[in-house]
Amino acid sequence: MKTVAYYRGCLASLSAKELDTSTRALAPKVGLELVDLETVTCCGAGDIHEAEPDYYLHLNARILAYAEATGSDTLMTVCNVCTLNLRQANFMLSNDDVLRERVNANLESVGAPPYSGGVDVRHLLWLIAEGDGYELLKQAAHKGLKGLRVAPFYGCQILRPSRLLGFEDPDRPWSLEAIIEACGGEPVDYPAKIKCCGFPIIQAREETALGELIQPIEQAIERGADAMVTPCPLCHLSLDAWQSKLEASTGRHFALPILHLSQLIGVAAGIEESELKFKRHVVSVKPVVEKLSV
């Protein structure tokens, strides 16, 4: 078992609780022991980073410090945006002693622990796409996916900027495909799998965002996908909840089920519906469940 500090972020605590429950159910099956972080806050998404960058750095330093205090060398994320925010702050603090000392003095002045730079921020996807996690995943996925055609959707901030993320080639990613195959599914390739779902501007610029959102959904369906999987709850919210708006604005019928990464593997690993919580999805996952139960 690898012990990791588990940063679930805002959405998995709120509107995407199914991501949290399915991640918790999956973790032991892929060799991960999760240590909860109760005192941490939101990473600020791209929003605090943009509006109040110094506060962004301090909030993320505080999260990293509490993760370090658990004694684990790894902070596990389940969201692309959290991953980029925390990794970026981590690089800023680890590569600049003067900056880190100032931030630490501020953290200590409010009663938080200082951060020494000893934590690596890793997304769940990266922990199970290679190495021991991948081997355990193959064993865990005993029920398989019966050749389900699954479209991987990476989202942006787990790929780009690659110098901050660096796990895989941002133009030729492979990790989701490897996991889909290991689970007995068939990956569906399509160009928009590395593009934006539109979520960051879906409230402020809905029309522009929907113009982005339609691309992965339309392409995945054209190529015969039964479902789509994403490692990001923000992409999930956009792809799942806003799909109805896309249908309303185009007059077309999509009904493409969208699964969180932990749910897709969870199905293949026989995790109960009570943990996967498909009822919390706006687009029905029933066709997928029925296809697999035949």
Partner: peptide, 10 residues
Amino acid sequence: LGHVQGERAL
């Protein structure tokens, strides 16, 4: 300034 302060480290 809040953004610039991290550029050296990045």
